[in-house]
Nucleic acid binder design. Structure first.
Lengths: 187, 187
DNA sequence: TTCATTTTTTAACATTTGTAAAAAATTAAG
DNA sequence: CTTAATTTTTTACAAATGTTAAAAAATGAA
């Protein structure tokens, strides 16, 4: 997904504003397995995914907990680092070789204070993230594991093909054994 | 909590901007039990809580699921209505007689497009909400019910005193019986 | 293709959590 | 104060989920 399309997701920006933004974005690539952002660090970079798929996970005593997947067009950012300037929860691991658009968050902040179009664009970006996070929370609290799995199959069939089931199980909040049982029952 | 303090939570606004905002805010009161926002409706009003406590819940086949509590200083808004113009998930019920600051979201939108200070203020408001929602999600996915209950006791002891345990149990994602068991074990 | 590695499924058993109903405690109203 | 209504806890049993280990299946590299 190219950078113009990604930017336009959060509302049209005037030509000039858009140029100011793209000027501070660089394209980077990293191999599968690379860790883009690290848990416990205050991160100062954010990314948009041009191509590839990534996961966010935290290391717990009980093992790794996967809590987010990002795909083409998605925004990769430690909101806790960016908003509160505090250590982030997430390791972001690339599950495929990825092409990314990289941006320093301080450049973003600077633009917010200079340009009202930008401030509103940034507002919409965060609003979209909030809606998605809210949907996740609602899904976790209202639905059974079976319902969450079915929902995922319908809304994100590509995810099931691209990501191994251990990560999916963790994302759904159940053990891999439980997920296997659910899949067996659906046959 | 007065309106100035509430507004200041999301960054200082110039005198003039602040006046424009307060001009479109009215103070209202409603009795305990009143439903402020309704599930399945696109809502056009938002509120800040001056005094009192409220809960957000959804009606499910299995009963009501409580997924949020709001207290003094908190923002009450259907993000889905406001951001996506779609039907909201939540009923907002007042758990005490409440004093609220009411605002039409279209007035907010108008200010965002006129005033960069406002656009950034609104951005910060949403950022704060996002951080809180993210924390909730992380808590639901990473922690056991016992840990979530202890966390709630430490960070929100007032909530335990003001809200009945059935709602707390639902909020924690467990049955009331389970919560009783947890409380019994801690004695 | 073959072998080694990784991933997924299955099995057996333990633990947790839910459901329904009753008892106890608390709160509200007259 | 007394009674009724609501809320919380307890009990007994059923259902769901986790853990560990092993087997089966799938994937990938030589």
């Amino acid at each position: 997904m190219n950078i113009d399309k990604i930017i336009d997701q959060f509302g049209q920006l005037p030509e000039q504003s858009k140029n100011a933004l793209t000027a501070s974005i660089t394209e980077v690539t990293f191999p599968k397995g690379h860790i883009l952002l690290k848990e416990g660090k205050v991160e100062h970079r954010m990314y948009f995914i041009k191509k590839g798929i990534v996961r966010a996970y935290s290391d717990k005593a009980s093992g790794q907990v996967t809590f987010w997947f990002g795909q083409e067009g998605d925004t990769v950012i430690s909101m806790r680092s960016y908003v509160a300037n505090e250590k982030g929860y997430e390791n972001i691991e690339l599950l495929e070789n990825c092409e990314l658009y990289e941006l320093e968050t301080r450049n973003l902040r600077a633009l917010f204070n200079l340009d009202i179009h930008f401030a509103n664009w940034g507002r919409k970006l965060v609003e979209r993230e909030l809606i998605k996070t809210e949907e996740r929370l609602i899904s976790m609290q209202f639905k059974t594991a079976v319902e969450r799995y079915n929902e995922l199959m319908q809304t994100q069939p590509g995810l099931l093909r691209r990501v191994q089931l251990g990560y999916i199980a963790s994302y759904l909040g159940i053990s891999q054994v439980s997920l296997s049982r659910i899949r067996a029952d659906l046959r």
